[in-house]
Nucleic acid binder design. Structure first.
Length: 559
RNA sequence: UGCCCGAUGGUGUAACGGUAGCACAACAGACUCUGGAUCUGUUUGUCUAGGUUCAAAUCCUAGUCGGGCAACCA
């Protein structure tokens, strides 16, 4: 009951077709009312926000229907997979707030059982060893508009098939020379049913099974078996597997006596504006060093978002918000940003920091308080308060002073007053300039909070003496256009945003020196920031900008 | 052009034969010691054409548009 995900699930929310299907199946008593799902990533890359959608769906449905969700490494292609990815996947799923309990599996641990099923298929005349080369197979397979023709090896005897398959496993044949095919229908309009490959010969070291195997099962064969072995009831996957479903069902139909009859249901993957989502492109960004790594705060990876300061509950809320459909859509990153602000607004401690300083000298320095009290989070009284040292010299944001203010400018300008957060008022009485005429500082009169001057604006500040210097990494969108990877004839890397990272040294209130890595703050009136988990050190804090605050003035002044 | 899937405001979605609703975005206003948050309001939508029905976003047919499928990848 104390789990945040319960309250997330509790609020009124429209359903979606997958929830409807599962509810109906459960009500009808299918599989004894059990609901077992799985999240089956291939450990060949880092998880990203698109995976988060699948993770929240898989684990969310299981949770909602009193079932369980398995985490399974779909590692049937050792050429691309590694333990580094396995570990990152576990870390990310856990960080997102999900728990697979004891149900952590590897496809590779089923290799022996899968092999036995294949032998059984052969014995029943449903699979055969084919010697056609890949080149020849292109011709035999046919094209979508034209049926294929049967392989000359299709009607070998069971004994010969069994012998050949055993020798494939024993390593008697070179890579790619033979394969095991299902015997289904070469005239099927669905290409996936035209005698699909079940096993290929591939001498690759597998990160789990080492060199034990030189034949590996194909996804279309392995996946339904894994689901069946584990008693999965609802096998949720993305739309591109829709045409594979008849084959999935064919494989499942070959089995007997399994705890559940798994059902594959497809939904649309997530597309986010101003980002790329394919593993290949993310890998390219990393390998070409266009970002600092998989966990670069500009990456849509879970590790990138985490380092950026995005809280997991924001990602879960986002995944709930976008819904589940079979329609390929493009979700606006603004929705993600909204979910992030929404989560952080409630939890992030407020602090003050000045990114672009302008020195303020207070002319009536006689009666200044030594420090002032500031609340830590106006949205959360329990967050308490802190004291900030005060003094006769302050820094304010250069933007917060205008020598000739534009219309409706509520901040400081000569002769005008403004409130300074928690600390009374400033009235500008003088402007200091260099020889070139640039403003180098301003002189102000200070009035205590009790003065109750009529002002429309409040600005933030930090004391000039005792300010904590910190590195602020100002992250922005990685790309300049909504769909960087869908531009005809153009590389997505052409649309990288040259301003996606700007690093500045900020003056901050002393309390920020003690920020713990990963701790989130709102720098008032600027943005949410997080202490970088890798580079931030005591006494030398480094902060990543997670997301800016909404800025009505910036919007209005653009017009 | 063979097969499969889909189409609701700018965006993402709901409505399961009976008043097209919600969120984001945008805009306007209120409030505010964050030009944040909060609150109120406004604009904008059922791909097209037929059919079934008292009644269609919803069911049927055709079309249009979009996506997917021809790795020994997943």
């Amino acid at each position: 009951m104390n789990d945040p995900r319960d309250s997330e699930a509790a609020h009124d929310r429209p359903s979606h077709f997958i929830r409807d299907i599962i509810a109906a199946d459960q009500q009808a008593g299918k599989n004894g009312g059990a609901v077992v799902t799985r999240f089956p990533p291939e450990p060949n890359g880092y998880l990203h926000i698109g995976h988060a959608k699948a993770i929240c769906l898989d684990f969310g449905m299981a949770r909602e229907f009193g079932g369980r969700c398995h985490l399974r490494m779909d590692d049937t292609n050792p050429a691309k997979e590694s333990m580094e990815y396995v570990e990152s996947i576990k870390t990310d799923v856990r960080w997102l707030g999900w728990d697979w309990g004891d149900h952590f599996f590897f496809s590779a641990h089923y290799f022996e059982r899968m092999y036995a099923v294949a032998c059984d298929l052969i014995k029943r005349g449903k699979a055969y060893v084919c010697e056609l080369t890949q080149e020849q197979w292109k011709d035999y397979r046919g094209v979508p508009t034209r049926p294929g023709k049967e392989s000359p090896f299709r009607n070998r005897s069971v004994e010969e098939n069994l012998d050949l398959f055993a020798r494939m496993r024993a390593g008697e044949f070179p890579d790619g020379s033979l394969c095991l095919r299902a015997k289904i229908d070469m005239a099927a309009p669905n290409i996936h049913l035209r005698d699909p490959v079940l096993y290929r010969i591939m001498r690759e070291h597998h990160y789990l099974t080492g060199n034990e195997w030189c034949i590996y099962p194909m996804y279309d064969y392995a996946h339904p078996l894994e689901d069946a072995f584990e008693g999965i009831t609802h096998s949720l996957c993305t739309l591109e597997f829709e045409v594979h479903r008849p084959l999935y069902d064919w494989v499942v139909d070959q089995l007997e006596n399994f705890p559940a009859r798994p059902r594959q249901i497809e939904f649309a993957r997530l597309n986010l504006s101003y980002t790329v989502m394919s593993k290949r492109k993310l890998l390219e960004l990393v390998q070409k060093k266009l970002v600092s790594g998989w966990d670069d705060p500009r990456m849509p990876t879970i590790s990138g978002l985490r380092r950026r300061g995005v809280p997991p509950e924001a990602i879960r809320a986002f995944c709930e918000e976008i819904g589940i459909t079979k329609y390929e859509s493009l979700t606006d990153v603004a929705l993600l940003e909204h979910c992030i602000r929404n989560a952080l607004n409630k939890t992030a401690l407020r602090r003050m920091a000045v990114l672009d300083p302008l020195l303020v000298t207070i002319e009536n320095a006689e009666a200044l308080p030594a420090d002032i009290e500031a609340v830590n989070n106006p949205e959360d009284p329990a967050a308490g308060s802190r004291r900030i040292p005060f003094g006769s010299q302050l820094y304010i944001e250069r933007d917060d002073f205008a020598e000739t203010p534009p219309p409706k400018y509520f901040r400081l300008s000569p002769g005008k007053s403004v409130r300074i957060r928690y600390a009374g008022f400033l009235t500008c009485t003088g402007v200091q300039k260099d020889d070139a005429g640039a403003v180098t500082g301003i002189i102000c009169r200070w009035d205590p909070p009790t003065a109750e001057l009529k002002v429309k604006g409040t600005i933030h500040w930090v004391p000039a003496h005792g300010a904590q210097m910190l590195e602020a990494r100002l992250y922005d969108r990685l790309f300049t256009i909504e769909q960087p990877d869908s531009q005809e004839g153009r590389e997505f890397t052409e649309f990288l945003n040259p301003d996606s990272l700007k690093t500045v040294t900020a003056h901050a209130e002393p309390a920020l020196a003690e920020a713990k890595p990963g701790e989130a703050f709102q720098f008032e009136r600027i943005a949410y920031f997080v202490a970088d988990s890798l580079d931030s050190k005591p006494g030398r804090p480094v902060f990543n900008r997670t997301v800016t605050l909404k800025d009505a003035w910036a919007k209005a002044s653009k017009k």
